[in-house]
């Protein structure tokens, strides 16, 4: 009758090391799961303003973008100007943006281009809402992935009233505005 060999500590350590090595090798050479990043869907965004105050970063990683192929290059741009502005110019009292992050560039009479300086933008979405209601809706918010620290649980997503945040794959880190997005906007 053969005697069963007793497993000693050294054998156990060898087995565990072999198991760990095999697992690490499999993970290294096997198909790697794609990384996920937080992003907000412009079709669901209701411009509540919480992207400014609820991000762990200050200023927020959420920035406004201008989709130029939707922009009307309007002289009377509601995303840029305070409602009821007497003069359509760059006077500080006429600007809607609380941080003056939007720059108005003359293109040709009577059309202007609106550039957003992301270093100044705090993601409050005032311009987004104004452009959406009164203009073509070319402004929209996105999380800048080069700024976002990709928290495990995004604090803005947690408090977003319209559930506009979701995790998107690394290969498509942004959700761009399209012509159909305008119609898909939820009621405010």
């Amino acid at each position: 009758m053969s005697e069963r060999k007793k497993l000693d500590r050294r054998d156990f350590m060898r087995g565990a090391a072999a198991f760990a090595f095999t697992g690490a090798t499999w993970m290294a050479v096997g198909e790697k799961a794609e990384a996920k990043y937080w992003q907000l869907d412009p079709a669901k965004c209701t411009q509540c303003g919480r992207c400014t105050t609820h991000c762990v970063l200050n200023p927020s990683a959420v920035k406004c973008l201008n989709q130029f192929d939707i922009c009307g290059y309007c002289d009377l741009c509601f995303g840029y100007l305070q409602p009821g502005s007497r003069n359509l110019d760059t006077g500080a009292e006429n600007q809607l943006c609380p941080t003056a992050a939007i720059e108005r560039w003359f293109i040709e009479a009577p059309y202007y281009e609106y550039k957003i300086h992301e270093d100044k933008c705090i993601g409050c979405a005032k311009c987004v809402k104004a452009c959406l209601v009164f203009g073509n809706g070319s402004f929209y918010l996105q999380i800048r992935q080069d700024i976002c620290i990709n928290c495990n649980e995004c604090s803005i997503a947690k408090s977003c009233p319209s559930d506009a945040f979701s995790e998107v794959p690394e290969s498509e880190p942004y959700i761009y505005l399209t012509g159909d997005t305008h119609l898909a906007h939820p009621p405010t």
Partner: peptide, 14 residues
């Protein structure tokens, strides 16, 4: 709640 709600200057009220 750690984060304050946005004030009136950060919201476009239509």
């Amino acid at each position: 709640e750690k984060f304050p709600e946005p004030g009136p200057n950060l919201v476009y009220d239509i």
